[in-house]
Amino acid sequence: MPLNIDWQQILLHWMNLAILAGGLYFLLYKPVVDFMHKREQHYKDMEDKADRELQKAEEAKAQYQQKLEGAEEEIREARQKSQAAVQKSAEEQIALAQAQAREIVVEAHAQAAQAREKAIRDSQRELKRLASEAAEKLAFHKDDDPFDSFLDLAEGGSKHESR
């Protein structure tokens, strides 16, 4: 054969290549490619997980946003309610205070009337007492015998008048 081409040697080279291909595939190529796929899958899973988490977070954010908007409405209503309640309570308290004030005034009037009546009664009683004391003083003078005085008074009071 030209150039010393030898089919037997070519076949031996093929066999050599077949051995090399099989050996390299099982010893190096497959394990390394498997590892690279595994790592790729690992990062893909991580990315998917991150995407899912992100989606969840977005949903939660939307929900909270919705809730927040609802809460603002609720706050406004609650504020209105509380303002109304406060106003109502204030009005009630004012009415109560006015009622109490009226009662106090009425009571004060009553007490004043009672005090006046009492004062009148007391003054009348005092007047009576003073009158009776004066009468006694007049009637039971120390130098006179009470019985004589009485008799004098009964007889016409001339002695008394003369004095």
């Binding site: 010393n4 030898d6 040697q9 031996l12 080279h13 050599n16 051995i19 090399l20 050996g23 390299l24 010893l27 190096l28 394990p31 390394v32 590892f35």
Partner: peptide
């Protein structure tokens, strides 16, 4: 045979030995 055939088998042997060592110790 041509010395190149011996070289070919030697290269294959070296490559497979290196691959085996890498498979056992590195991978």
């Amino acid at each position: 045979v041509s010395p190149a055939l011996i070289s070919a088998f030697t290269v294959t042997g070296l490559l497979l030995l290196a691959a085996l060592l890498l498979r056992v110790f590195a991978v």
